[in-house]
């Protein structure tokens, strides 16, 4: 089983986000980055499938030089090799533009499966997996909770809304977008970190790729959301805050 895992590098959760001077994207200068958490779950599922069935796990990640850190992390956890699609300006791009770059590289790989997280923690489009499936002509399923290989097909458990689930059988090759929490995440071992240094990372420059799409949505401006609701913020030392809060809940909201 050859499995591609598409991962994204995103700003560390709870980063202080500053908007750039033009108001078009973030000021990236002081940001730290990490692997998008849903993609970490996709990687974990891929590694466990490989441990069960044998084969190869290949990681693909698009972005500037800094994403090599995320690629190393994936290799240290057990991916066999990686592809870095080098591109400087993907930050605010639409999902189709970025996915088309990935597809242009992946069409030569002929995997059995492509796994990716169900969405990214930064832009939150939740589309990359589905677009890859369409561009590569593969079947797909989204928000997957369990994967059960059955020869030339797979049976997956999908999460639906309001506590409903559904099993779906798909022919291979297929793209799955993986729900967070599907398995317990592993840590990279010291041995894994050491071995990662010897693993192959192929670098492809986005400017050498000819994706068959042009950008069709433009993020014109980003800004802090307007406050819609009047929230009373209580301040002071913790004891004081607690006292104010109990008073408000008892005598103002009358809910305590």
């Amino acid at each position: 089983m050859k499995i591609i895992v598409s991962v994204k590098q995103v700003p560390v959760r709870d980063s202080l986000l500053r908007i750039n001077g033009e108001g078009t994207w973030l000021d990236e200068s002081d940001l730290s980055y990490e692997m998008n958490e849903p993609d970490a779950y996709a990687l974990e599922e891929a590694l466990q499938l490989k441990e069960k069935l044998g084969g190869e796990v290949v990681v693909i990640c698009a972005g500037p030089q800094r994403v090599s850190q995320t690629i190393r992390e994936a290799l240290a956890k057990g991916a066999d090799r990686a592809i870095h699609v080098q591109a400087e300006d993907l930050g605010p791009r639409d999902a189709l533009t970025t996915a088309a770059l990935l597809a242009a590289v992946l069409k030569a790989e002929l995997p059995d499966m492509i796994l990716t997280g169900l969405q990214s923690d930064d832009l939150g489009y939740g589309q990359t997996g589905v677009i890859l499936a369409e561009l590569l002509g593969y079947a797909h399923a989204t928000i997957v909770m369990e994967v059960e290989p059955q020869g030339n097909t797979i049976r997956v458990k999908r999460e639906l809304e309001d506590g409903w689930f559904q099993n779906v059988i798909l022919p291979l090759p297929a793209v799955l977008t993986v729900q967070s929490g599907i398995k317990k995440l592993r840590y990279a071992t010291l041995m894994g970190i050491k071995k990662a240094k010897t693993k192959e990372v192929k670098t492809v420059s986005a400017s050498d790729l000819v994706p068959d799409t042009a950008p069709s949505a433009l993020m014109e401006r980003i800004y802090l959301p307007a406050h819609a609701k009047h929230t009373q913020i209580l301040s002071g030392d913790p004891k004081d805050v607690a006292r104010q809060l109990v008073e408000k809940l008892r005598f103002e909201a009358r809910v305590l």
Binding site: I19, S216, A217, L218, E220, R221, I222, L224, P225
Partner: peptide
């Protein structure tokens, strides 16, 4: 954050 997005 919020973003204004225009499709062409």
């Amino acid at each position: 954050l919020s973003a204004d997005v225009r499709a062409n």
